[in-house]
Nucleic acid binder design. Structure first.
Lengths: 112, 112
DNA sequence: CTACTTGTCAACCGATTGGTTGACAGATTG
DNA sequence: CAATCTGTCAACCAATCGGTTGACAAGTAG
């Protein structure tokens, strides 16, 4: 089962999200399941490289792979992102107050 | 002048957040500015290591450092996290629907 | 002046990343 | 059967990561 501590999970999730190729893969999977070769095509990289990226995403729990006849279907599993979002959200009050201060500043000088 | 592209920014932010020591540093800074040595103490690491982590956070725009007399004050700058949260949030509808489907599934078969 | 504190810089280290190529296994098709 | 398409595995590579130690500059205190 799942022994990963919350910290380990967050490490994996944020690490998975820290690469733009992987973020792009998630974007593509958000519009529906896809095969590995299909995902590789627009990235100008070998299928191997994409396969490794998919493993990183899978280890982070962000996708699932299912053998569908001859091809491998990858499906988005966005739920673990909730953990990341939740972690980030605790800073919301902090950054809102900063944005407010910036807004005040901008307003003060008139907008240009 | 180099204006980091959104992708570069997100790379840096997510990478900064992908390490638990750095996340802990942000947590500590959320309760107020602190000095480097002060931040290093509870982590059982050298000041040098913490200093490097702080540089990663600073490059991601998540903290600012200010020379205050003899010591270096680090302050949280949470606003860039909004970018990360915003990126993640686009998957919210997706994972909500998955949770719904999972609930249906569990309900359907009773518990196994 | 010397001594100490604070933090960075520089070099080094092993482990990990992100990519490559090549071999290969499984399923489909000729 | 052979050929092809699928994707993974294994080895390799340069670059980066996360930590160390040691030297050192700047500021403070005796």
């Amino acid at each position: 089962m799942k022994t990963a501590e919350p910290d380990d999970r967050l490490d994996g999730i944020f690490h998975a999200l820290s690469n733009r190729t992987r973020r792009a893969l998630l974007d593509e999977l958000a519009s529906g399941p896809a095969r590995v070769t299909e995902l590789a095509r627009p990235h100008g990289m070998s299928v191997n490289a994409i396969s490794k990226h998919l493993f990183v995403l899978e280890n982070a729990g962000l996708i699932r792979r299912e053998k569908e006849g001859t091809v491998q279907l990858c499906k988005l599993n966005a739920e673990p992102m909730a953990n990341a979002e939740e972690w980030i959200r605790r800073y919301k009050a902090f950054w809102n107050s900063q944005i407010d201060r910036l807004a005040d500043f901008v307003e003060e000088r008139g907008e240009d």
